[in-house]
């Protein structure tokens, strides 16, 4: 049995956390090895095809990420997808408060569910750009000889802009994580009850007392 975690609730299961860090690792390698072709000062990383090899290995891991997610926790994956693309009028109210939230203020922020509307948009855009970056990447990888000059320029443009979008999303994601000290949600998987009540009130309400009690003493089910 793992430690009892008094006053804590579980936010992410082990499987979800593993998939998350697989994504982080492969994304950072993809970014660095990709930038080798974008930033002349980093071109030395590309010499001899070095970055090319890393980019392909990491691309494999990156594309494996959603497959693994669906395979091990199909229910969670489906829920995430559904939540990310479902928006209500209530979310609009939340977005009104978003500028203040960005600047570190949670005053007057309407209660949010398990995932707040900002996170929903973040996830939705990540889904879309995951598809565009992987699609254009696969075209460069396996279909290059059929591209011709026009095709090459279009595919590279899609790939570059997806890189821009995903990297901005990633920086924004880290921004909120460190601003609101949320890292433990993805390391230990647990957040304080205090936090859950304050930032994701609706989600906290929806957790049955048993769930809260159980997760407090049972990390093993997650593992």
């Amino acid at each position: 049995m793992t430690d009892v975690k008094p006053g804590m609730v579980q936010r992410y299961k082990l499987a979800q956390r593993v998939v998350h860090w697989l994504g982080v690792g492969s994304f950072l390698i993809l970014l660095l090895s990709g930038l080798a072709l974008l930033v002349p000062q980093l071109a030395f990383l590309a010499a001899g095809g070095l970055s090319r090899v890393f980019h392909r290995i990491a691309a494999f891991g990156f594309m494996l990420m959603p497959i693994v997610y669906v395979a091990i926790v199909p229910h969670d994956a489906l829920e995430l997808l559904k939540e990310s693309f479902t928006y209500t009028l209530k979310d609009l109210k939340w977005f009104k408060h978003m500028p203040a939230y960005v600047l570190g203020s949670t005053k007057g922020l309407p209660p949010a569910g398990r995932i707040n509307p900002g996170q929903k948009i973040h996830h939705a855009m990540t889904f879309v750009m995951f598809v565009t970056v992987a699609g254009s990447g696969l075209a460069l990888w396996f279909g290059q000889s059929a591209l011709g000059p026009e095709g090459l320029a279009i595919v590279l443009s899609v790939h570059d802009l997806s890189m821009l979008g995903l990297t901005v999303l990633m920086i924004g994601h880290m921004y909120f994580t460190f601003l609101y000290g949320a890292l433990p949600a993805m390391t230990t998987g647990f957040v304080t009850e205090d936090y859950a009540r304050m930032e994701h009130a609706e989600w906290y309400e929806s957790l049955s007392p048993q769930t809260v009690a159980m997760t407090e003493s049972d990390d093993q089910t997650a593992a």
Partner: peptide
């Protein structure tokens, strides 16, 4: 002061965000 704040945990998360 909320009651949970009394409980000192190593993960002293003020508020969280995923």
């Amino acid at each position: 002061p909320v009651e949970a704040a009394v409980v000192e945990t190593p993960a002293q998360t003020e508020e969280n965000h995923d």
